[in-house]
Design a protein around this nucleic acid. Structure first.
Lengths: 227, 227
DNA sequence: TAATTCAGTTAACAATTTAATAATACGACT
DNA sequence: AGTCGTATTATTAAATTGTTAACTGAATTA
């Protein structure tokens, strides 16, 4: 199974050595870990051994073709969720639809520019990692934007909305000094007009509830988050 | 934001009425709910109103082009995770790479066969919905989305439809705070307009029927499910 | 050094928002 | 007609939010 953090592993299966090499080179350049297979059977073995996050499959290969390989992979629980991209010289509609319905995530027709291929791969991983929740982890302080929850050393701290938004804003760029105006615009919006003291008071409440000196005052300028 | 159970909504933006119509027809045939926009500005408005799960954007449109629209959408938190596919007659490498790097999930060059497009759309949703099993088991609480049934300690609890959908939504991501707007969109849809109090009342009923304190209110923000 | 000013802190209070509840109304369906 | 599901409204209760005013400490000035 693929970890969200680590370097992504990609297996490329194609019977043309040139293509294999070009794609491998470009993906490695982008920081991916790459393995290759020069036919369908080897691809299956490599998939087991290498446990890739993404498999790029040529359709027309000697022995087992790409679609067969895909089917065999999808049958195994271990590869149920593995990303699969078909790469094919066949650009006919029927094959493409069949390929996608087999459970592939994309179908790219050759010839394809390496840069475009890399972009598509990036896009797939980007989307998959969107799963990550908007959690900010700063030392022992955790700010979960989705859950509207702050915890320190796993102890939950209840913040009111404005308090939370203020903290989330400051913590979004630790070290950066936010001007009072920025804070007003971000947290309170441009419509509402509130006095300057209001910010101070909210800062105080956050400090108090956190019991942690992480909001620093920069006199005459604004506030910043610093652990 | 996309509901786990409901029909997926797709917004298509293209300045060519023919294309708009063909795509719309094919996607509706596949069971999707479709809205259309004939230029970039309208697309932005429709996105806000219709709240689609996927937006298919033509790149060359009068006024705002697709890439601009994509950028504007991605800036708004509400559309940060919305699926976006570019559709373009431009097949040059630079535009395609730029499009994908802008945050699109796919880039398809015209002309495209409607069947292939539909397959690609299906593939995207398939990938996104991987964890969407019908039954949710949360501690001793079981929620069966297919049978519209809830049980606690094997004791069946009858919920009305809206009540059920509300609970199912909140329980789909335990801990996550759902904004009132999200709840309205998911449970009631974008078409119907109901007052804010309606949500409260339904929350109350669910709490009452479950006899279980699993829905927490987060003042000023929304509600969350927590066991 | 003492007085003054400036900027921010603090605590108490008031105003405003927001949600829970109960009672009510209206259809759809039986 | 009666029940059920749904949405609205009014009332009440509670929490958040904003303001005020007094306080503190540092920097500035006389």
């Amino acid at each position: 199974m693929s970890s969200t953090n680590s370097v992504k592993k990609i297996l490329i299966a194609d019977d043309e050595p040139d293509i294999l090499e070009i794609i491998q080179y470009n993906l490695q350049n982008e920081g991916y870990e790459v393995a290759t297979a020069k036919n369908g059977l080897i691809a299956l073995e490599e998939a087991k051994r290498f446990n890739p996050d993404l498999i790029i499959l040529d359709i027309m290969m000697p022995g087992k073709n790409g679609i067969e390989v895909c089917n065999l992979l999808r049958m195994q629980p271990a590869f149920k969720d593995t990303l699969i991209i078909f790469l094919s010289a066949l650009s006919d509609e029927v094959t493409e639809v069949k390929g996608l319905e087999t459970g592939a995530d994309d179908y790219i027709t050759k010839p394809v520019s390496p840069k475009v291929l890399v972009s598509k791969v990036n896009a797939l991983f980007r989307r998959l990692n969107k799963e990550d929740t908007g959690i900010l982890q700063l030392g022992d302080l955790k700010i979960d934007r989705e859950k509207y929850m702050v915890s320190y050393f796993d102890k939950e701290i209840i913040l009111a909305r404005k308090e939370f938004e203020l903290l989330a804003l400051l913590a979004s760029k630790p070290g950066k000094v936010f001007l009072r105006n920025e804070i007003l615009n971000q947290v309170w919006g441009t419509e509402v007009i509130v006095g300057d003291r209001t910010i101070d008071v909210h800062v105080r409440k956050v400090r108090q509830k956190l019991g942690l000196d992480c909001i620093t005052t920069v006199k005459g300028v604004g506030y910043k988050f610093d652990l």
